[in-house]
Design a protein around this nucleic acid. Sequence first.
DNA 1: CTAAATGCAAATCTTTTGCACAACC
DNA 2: GGTTGTGCAAAAGATTTGCATTTAG
Lengths: 149, 149
Amino acid sequence: MTKCSHDRKNIDIDSLNERVRKAGMKLTQQRSQLLKILLHHPEPISADEIFKKIDDKSDGMDLVTIYRILKKFEEGGLVSRLEFGDGVARFELTLESGHHHHHVICRHCQRVEPLHICDLDQHIKMVEAMGYKQVAHRLDFFGVCSRCQ
Amino acid sequence: MTKCSHDRKNIDIDSLNERVRKAGMKLTQQRSQLLKILLHHPEPISADEIFKKIDDKSDGMDLVTIYRILKKFEEGGLVSRLEFGDGVARFELTLESGHHHHHVICRHCQRVEPLHICDLDQHIKMVEAMGYKQVAHRLDFFGVCSRCQ
DNA sequence: CTAAATGCAAATCTTTTGCACAACC
DNA sequence: GGTTGTGCAAAAGATTTGCATTTAG
């Protein structure tokens, strides 16, 4: 039902690296390392989680650097910042060409699953009718997943 | 178009106080003061904004107390916690009996406007079909409001 | 009276900033 | 070579916790 893993396979490190350069950023060892982690992580991941993943491999990269790269990548449109309400920002690769999805978050285990439907045209039209331009939206579902019930 | 101010008038301090007691909490001076502020504030408001409102009147209540009350109120279902992505949690009174609304946030001035339509039945059914129980959702729109364009 | 709530101080957690050094193009 | 990025230390901002004192019921 979800196309997540399928989509993910269509992104490779090379095209990501190219997107870094296209955005006018230098491609450092740290940045490609971070891209690899994002690419292979199935769910939105926080700066600290990334840091711990790297730390385990005694292959240092500073937490500060992670924050800075994530901010740069967000500005460059490579990653999207998500907040699910627990005070920690999580990040995921922005898929190409307007691919757009939402999230289902388990209230119990915090696991995140993507939801690949989005039919909010009438909502968006209404917001535009209220006078807003450049309307974007965020839609998340919270529930208790089958494993946690 | 929005029913916000209308709905708000239908809530009075007395019924709020009653909800505090029903939730098994003591009704302190600080709590009813906080309720009044929430009642008369048209948009979701942060703990610090509440603190400053009170501070202006030289009528002290500790910031810590505000955080503690808001957490209690959230547990008791009196207020809803919202996060719009700037790292600050904002709160609003939970309107009674399933009244449900969303938000339109101006990317420029951060002003929040309520949106009183919600027609996501098919989305919710889909999430339930994925195995989730107790499905709730959050939908926010971001745009540039007419004043800021 | 007694459990619950508050105030104050200090801690914690996430994220940001300053500055010297290193790396990419 | 010069701009851009990184590491380290320290700061900043939001939120939480410990503990003694106060207050609602």
